[in-house]
Amino acid sequence: MNKIVEKENFSEKVVKIVVEAPLIAKARKPGNFVIVRVGEKGERIPLTIAGADIAKGTITIIVQKMGVSSTKLCNLEVGEYVTDLVGPLGKPTEIHKVGTVLCCGGGVGVAPLLPIVEGYKKAGNRVITVIAARSKDLLILEDEMRKHSDELIVMTDDGSHGRKGLVTEGMEEVIKREKVDECITIGPAIMMKFCSLLTKKYEIPTMASLNSIMVDGTGMCGACRVTVDGKTKFTCVDGPEFDAHKIDFDEMMSRLGGYKEEENDKMDHFQN
């Protein structure tokens, strides 16, 4: 049982939760994720870690209401408990000094990108960050990103904040303007696919962090399998980050929908 000590509604659908987890706070590194379960009938769901406070013994997770499990988590209030929380899981991001790094985040993918941006900056890189969302109210962590980046570009689909356009437009502008040595992308699968296509064109090494379906998160179930360079990998223990240019994003997107109908049924059951 882990107590929620802080909660902030970023928007109607996106919530920031700070939860007690002293050991995870100490052990986590950029790129790691946790598995969370809410309620005795609850599902185990993977969520990326957006930050940690070792002194307070807490970690921050940012959740978007999607199905039953994420909604139940978002509905918890300060003082209430998450039933189970385990981690940190996955291989951490390999952060080193490479020169200029382009960090691109979309939607709630901006949350796990934050510790990576911080890490790259601390390692002495020039960090240019592009964050994107459909509209202003879905945009998260803008101030934090600005603080840790040398430059921040904000893109919205509808132009309600920052510049109007897709994340890739912001990225391409940077790539055309200066030499980018490495790129990292986290966000919806379709976004990561197009980021990857773009950087492939410019031959910039790119990592993508995947948010596959998982049950245990420790390698046991294989629900998170993904094809990378023609080989099946497990996102939980081999990832969650992979060479974006080698990921079969189409297969990945279809696998994310592998339980769509069943999930919708659960949602109907939950709402009625």
Binding site: A223, R225, G257, G258
Partner: peptide, 12 residues
């Protein structure tokens, strides 16, 4: 085709 939806490990 083994990564098609509907195919899973016995563990899962």
């Amino acid at each position: 085709g083994e990564n098609s939806n509907g195919i899973m490990s016995s563990n899962e």
